[in-house]
C-alpha cells in the first residue's frame, strides 16, 4: 500500500515553503486517506478521527520548515498523525464504549449490496483494535494496514526495531485472541 511516488513531493513542498499555499492542497488530497485511516483506526471514532486528521495536516503545514528533505513526507505525516492521536487518547478521561462507536463510516461509499458485508468486517476490526493497548494498536495499524516495514516504523515512532517487533508479536497474539472470541460470540 505504500505506493506513493515521492519524486514530485520535494518540489511541491518547496513551493509551499516559498508561499504557494495552494499547492498544499495537492499533498492533503494525496495523503488524506492514509492519515484518516490511521486516525480512525487509532481512535475508533469518526468525528475524533476527522478532527485529528485535519489537525495533523494543519500542524504539518505550520511546521513545514522542520521537514527534512531526504526523508519521506509520508513518514513525517504518519508521525504527526500518531502523535496527535496519542495526545487525544491521553486527554480522554473515559473509554469510548464499544457500543457507542460511530456508525461504521468506512463503509460509507460502498454500494448497498456490499454494505452489509463491509459493515460486518469493519465493525469487528475496529472493535478489536479498540480493545488493544495503544502501542500495540499503533504497530498493528502501521505494519498490517499501512504495510510499512519495521525500519520505517522505527523512524516514525522513534522506537528501536527490536522493541517494535516485540510489540508487534504481542499485539498479534492479543488480536488473534480477541477476534477468535468475537467470532465465537457471534455464532
Amino acid at each position: 500500500m505504500n505506493d506513493y511516488v515521492s519524486t514530485d513531493e520535494y518540489p511541491l513542498i518547496k513551493e509551499c515553503l516559498s508561499g504557494d499555499r495552494d499547492k498544499y492542497a495537492v499533498l492533503v488530497d494525496r495523503y488524506k486517506t492514509m492519515v484518516y485511516t490511521v486516525a480512525y483506526r487509532m481512535l475508533g471514532d469518526a468525528d475524533a478521527a476527522n478532527d485529528m486528521a485535519q489537525e495533523s495536516f494543519i500542524s504539518a503545514y505550520a511546521g513545514l520548515k522542520g521537514f527534512h528533505f531526504g526523508s519521506k513526507f509520508s513518514s513525517w505525516l504518519y508521525r504527526i498523525a500518531v502523535n496527535k492521536c496519542r495526545d487525544y487518547l491521553r486527554g480522554k478521561k473515559e473509554m469510548v464504549s464499544l457500543d457507542a462507536i460511530a456508525e461504521v463510516s468506512a463503509c460509507r461509499d460502498v454500494t448497498p449490496e456490499e454494505a452489509a458485508s463491509c459493515r460486518q468486517t469493519e465493525d469487528v476490526v475496529q472493535k478489536a483494535l479498540n480493545m488493544l493497548p495503544e502501542d500495540y494498536r499503533e504497530i498493528i495499524i502501521l505494519k498490517h494496514i499501512e504495510e510499512l516495514d519495521y525500519k520505517e516504523i522505527a523512524a516514525i515512532l522513534g522506537v528501536g526495531v527490536n522493541a517494535l517487533k516485540v510489540r508487534s508479536h504481542r499485539g498479534r497474539e492479543m488480536l488473534k485472541k480477541i477476534l477468535q472470541e468475537k467470532t465465537v460470540a457471534a455464532q
Binding site: 492533503v28 469487528v124 494496514i145 477476534l179
Partner: peptide, 24 residues
Amino acid sequence: ARSLRTVKEGGRVPAPAFFTAEVM
C-alpha cells in the same frame, strides 16, 4: 494470519467529503 487478514481487509478508511477544503 487470518486475524491479520481480517484487519487488513477492514482496509483503508476514506476521508470524509470536503476534508481537503476544510483543511485548506
